[in-house]
Amino acid sequence: MVNSQDLAEELWAMKLGLKLLQERAKIGSYWWPYISNLPETYSVPIFFPGEDIKNLQYAPLLHQVNKRCRFLLDFEQEVRHILEDLKPDDHPFGGQSVDASSLGWGMSAVSSRAFRLHGKMLPDGTHNYFPMMLPLIDMCNHSFNPNSEIVQQQDAGNLKIPIKVVAAKVIKQNDPLLLNYGCLNNDLFLLDYGFVIHSNPYDCIELRYDGALLDAASMAAGVSSPSFSAPAPWQEDILSQLNFYGETPLLKVSLGGPELVDGRFLAALRVLLASDMDTVHKHDLNTLASLSAEAPLGIANEVAAFRTIIALCVIALGHFPTKIMEDESLLKKGVSGSTELAIQFRMQKKYMIIDVMRDLTRRVKLFSSKEEERAQG
């Protein structure tokens, strides 16, 4: 028997997807009117042609798409092995074959439509969460400025959990009902929902903390004496506290989104560009990791850190094979739906990187003007 409980927790969409496939195969299923109205295809990247997966041009997302595709192919073999010796009456899918395509359909139907609701209260006072498909409610589109919200009754003992959509503001006749699917980046919106948000305030890019790359970026930015590849012992100690050094370092950092610069990354840059150990030790890690903490190690240090990040952004832009103008030209020519989504995705990444550069450049100019005023005063 195919047991969805054997799947890892992060594959919750596949767990519910198996149940959806089972109901789709069941004659006279109570859920058939709902299932029959679900889309036959989904615009998520696992269904993109190979060329359009490449057209995404963004390694972290390519990794996730390939990971999901590999999972579906491997899981297809596992399911096929389990089902091949079952008697017809024991077959959970009514004798129908279940391949990677149908598994992908079930997983995508769930990831693009299910809501994660809170379940029983845990001993620490928090709730566990479980996915649930909500007919009609799942027809609401996404907005970061929603006019509606889902209300779930707080009753852990009630198996029939009352769930309703209520207006969060005045809604005019014929206006669509909009829910906030979550403060997600475009990677997750495209992977799970099959669309891209333009000017997404939560979009970001992932980078890998790499001393040699940072040395190159700082030199390109005109920052003197970069020491990213060979930090002093006291700097290494702080990097270990930031989890950039050690047996299991966390090297993934991000730029963009509400934080603009990953706090750990900003702290590391400030420390590595500092020469005075005593000055650094006057501040805790939270202060060093905060962008709102205005130049805790001095204006020169802050400007050097920002210029290094700007140079990294230039390098990141250079990793995209196409420029924004080329992307715009391709869209004007007319392309397939999946190609258009791939181009829109990579364009939004590029725009986001440029926005980070503009923000940091503005900060550099502001600090530089303050430094000039101080020198003149």
Results as ranks from 00 to 15, higher is better:
280 V>P: 05
265 F>T: 03
288 L>H: 04
272 L>N: 04
285 L>G: 14
272 L>E: 01
287 T>I: 12
286 N>M: 12
276 D>T: 08
282 K>Y: 14
278 D>T: 14
267 A>F: 07
266 L>K: 00
270 R>P: 03
278 D>C: 12
276 D>I: 04
273 L>A: 06
266 L>H: 00
265 F>C: 02
274 A>Q: 03
283 H>R: 11
264 R>A: 09
277 M>A: 15
288 L>I: 11
289 A>L: 08
279 T>D: 09
289 A>F: 10
295 A>F: 04
278 D>P: 06
278 D>S: 14
269 L>F: 04
293 A>R: 11
292 S>N: 14
268 A>T: 02
290 S>H: 06
264 R>D: 04
295 A>Q: 03
285 L>A: 12
269 L>R: 02
275 S>I: 09
272 L>F: 03
279 T>Q: 14
279 T>K: 10
283 H>K: 11
275 S>N: 12
290 S>E: 03
295 A>K: 06
290 S>I: 05
276 D>W: 06
292 S>V: 12
279 T>R: 07
291 L>K: 10
294 E>F: 01
270 R>K: 05
278 D>G: 11
287 T>G: 00
266 L>S: 00
264 R>H: 11
278 D>E: 15
281 H>V: 08
267 A>E: 07
268 A>L: 02
264 R>I: 12
280 V>L: 07
264 R>Q: 09
292 S>E: 14
283 H>L: 13
276 D>E: 13
273 L>D: 01
286 N>F: 05
276 D>A: 08
275 S>F: 08
291 L>T: 06
286 N>C: 10
275 S>K: 14
293 A>H: 12
269 L>D: 01
